[in-house]
Structure formats: structure tokens, C-alpha cells
């Protein structure tokens, strides 16, 4: 069973599991981006997370701020596009708020994730219903916090966050996009999953799976 504290190594597992998910689903993400974007989200995320895991493997960090600063900068400098600055800032802010620690409880993890979400909002100014990654990320964090508040373990909170991310992701399908490339399509963007919301659901799937392993 998963414990009450989260170690840095399970967060490395989180990242590597996220890398695996976006790599396995590279074509799927690109497929989604073909329908309402420019057919590169799969390539972007796979390239970025491959670079991240190479970096993490080459110079392992001992504290969260160090680890996630490196993760964020690697994404910022290897992805480009919209997802590079957005996911990059997410991890940069996550690391800044986490600080020089190597273990987290649920509250600390929540605070770091919240800071990450704040970074996405600062960069992209998404609002709920704009049909972006924010539509998966924001409800995921609501669910995470609710679980922690009701005494759930970080693993339980991550599982709840993942469930909520999936619901949020799926709810992007009928929406008309108002941010990013998909917004150029107007009404034609409705009826398609948002690629960024889909990769964000993978982010929380990876978190849930890595914390469930302990």
C-alpha cells in the first residue's frame, strides 16, 4: 500500500511514466492535434519528455527544486510550441514551490501542483471551458485537494486527480476552442478531444500510477 509521504524517487518515476505514456501515445496525440491543430503535439511531448529523462538520468538531483528546475528548463528549451512553455512553466513553478526538499506530504504536493497550475495560467491565461489542458488540470487539482482535505493519502489524492482529469479531458470534446490553434477553427473545433487536455490526463495517470507503487 502507498504510504503518506512521497519520495523524490517516486516523482522521478512519475516523470518517467509520463515519458512512457506520451511516447506510447505519440501518434494518438498527434492524431488529435491533426483534427484541430497542427499535428505536432505527440512529437512535441515525446521529444520533450525524452530530453527530460535523459537529463534526469545524466545528472540525478537530490532535492525537488533542483530536479524540477531542470525538468522545466529542459521542456522549455526542447519543446517549443505552446506546450513547451506551458508544461515547462508548470514544472518550474512546481519546483520553486516545493523547495529544497526530498519528501512531500499531501499538502506539500498539493501546493507544488497548485503553483504549477498557476504557472500555466500565468503563461496561457486559459479559463475553464476554453478547451485546453487547463480543462483537465484544474479539476484534477480540485479533486486532489478535496481528497487531501478529507484525509486521503497522496496516492489516493493522485488517483482522484486522475479520475477528475479524465472527466475534464472528455468534457473538452463538445467545446468550441477559445485558446490556442484550435480556436482558429471556430465551430469546427467542437466534436474533438483537446490534445493538451489529453496529455495532461496522462500526466495525472502517471502520477497516480507512480504513487500507487509507493
Amino acid at each position: 500500500m502507498a504510504g503518506e509521504t512521497v519520495t523524490l524517487s517516486s516523482l522521478v518515476t512519475w516523470l518517467s511514466r509520463f515519458r512512457d505514456l506520451v511516447t506510447e501515445n505519440r501518434n494518438y496525440l498527434t492524431e488529435l492535434d491533426s483534427a484541430i491543430g497542427d499535428a505536432d503535439h505527440g512529437a512535441n511531448m515525446a521529444r520533450g519528455m525524452a530530453a527530460v529523462m535523459e537529463k534526469v538520468g545524466a545528472s540525478p538531483a537530490t532535492t525537488a527544486d533542483e530536479l524540477f528546475k531542470s525538468v522545466g528548463m529542459t521542456l522549455v528549451t526542447s519543446v517549443g510550441g505552446a506546450s513547451g512553455p506551458l508544461y515547462g512553466t508548470f514544472f518550474l513553478r512546481f519546483g520553486m514551490t516545493a523547495g529544497a526538499v526530498s519528501e512531500f506530504d499531501g499538502a506539500a504536493l498539493s501546493a507544488a501542483l497548485r503553483a504549477g497550475l498557476g504557472g500555466v495560467v500565468a503563461r496561457g491565461k486559459p479559463e475553464l471551458g476554453d478547451k485546453t489542458m487547463f480543462d483537465a488540470m484544474s479539476p484534477a487539482l480540485e479533486a486532489f485537494d478535496a481528497s487531501v482535505a478529507s484525509g486521503g493519502s497522496p496516492a489516493a489524492a493522485a488517483a482522484a486527480a486522475y479520475d477528475a482529469a479524465v472527466v475534464g479531458r472528455d468534457a473538452t470534446t463538445p467545446l468550441v476552442a477559445r485558446k490556442g490553434r484550435a480556436s482558429y477553427l471556430g465551430e469546427r473545433s467542437a466534436g474533438h478531444l483537446d490534445p493538451g487536455a489529453t496529455s495532461t490526463a496522462f500526466l495525472f495517470q502517471a502520477l497516480a500510477e507512480s504513487l500507487a507503487q509507493g
Binding site: 499535428a39 505536432d40 512529437a43 522549455v76 528549451t77 519543446v79 517549443g80 510550441g81 505552446a82 512553455p85
Partner: peptide
């Protein structure tokens, strides 16, 4: 130059 259809990076 960024990757195909992907903006370059800040660095």
C-alpha cells in the same frame, strides 16, 4: 528555426 510547425524555444 523550430521543429516543423513548432515555434523555436526561448534559449
Amino acid at each position: 528555426a523550430g521543429e516543423v510547425f513548432t515555434s523555436p524555444t526561448p534559449d
